[in-house]
Amino acid sequence: MMRRIANIAVLLVAALLCYGMQTTKPHYADLTAPIPVYGKIQDTLRTRTFDIAVDKVAFARTLKLNRFGQQKLLTSGGVWAIVTAKLNARDRSTMVAAATWQGPDGLNYRASERVSLAAGALPVALDPGVAGKTRLVFEVLPSQVTGATLSVSGKLAGPLDSEARIALGSVAVQADGLPEGTIETYELGETF
């Protein structure tokens, strides 16, 4: 009798254990997610394939750029965030292909396709010992500016590869709701 009760107890415990493992099992995409390297503005972050140091972040209402010989003025319902960063390859030639602006509420913004032809836009090819740089342009909601995180990775999808995550810090808000220091027009020139 005792043996039977003990067996049932063992069975129940095993079932519970299996159920617990099943419900807490991480998703495959999480298990093979990129491996983050954390830092803040001005830090040099060392990922597996490249080093990155964010110089500065600027905000603008409109962007001005030359496209096929024509001056274009790009407006936005949100705000333009322009991030300039230094890049360096580690020990072999590599690419930096993807950047995401992650707002404090978890909204993710990919680097804007509207300015993908501007100088310094991703993807950027890097060679060891040759200083590289990039200018990333995001079109974000003004509420997603303060406390944002910038993720930069070598590939668009890089399972188990390292990814730079740069805390961009807090930014004060102006009376009109835009981040402090927002300029009217930012010119996306050939040099930056």
Partner: peptide, 11 residues
Amino acid sequence: SAGRRWLPTAA
């Protein structure tokens, strides 16, 4: 000699 590798550039 340090084992660094360069690929052809398009720059």
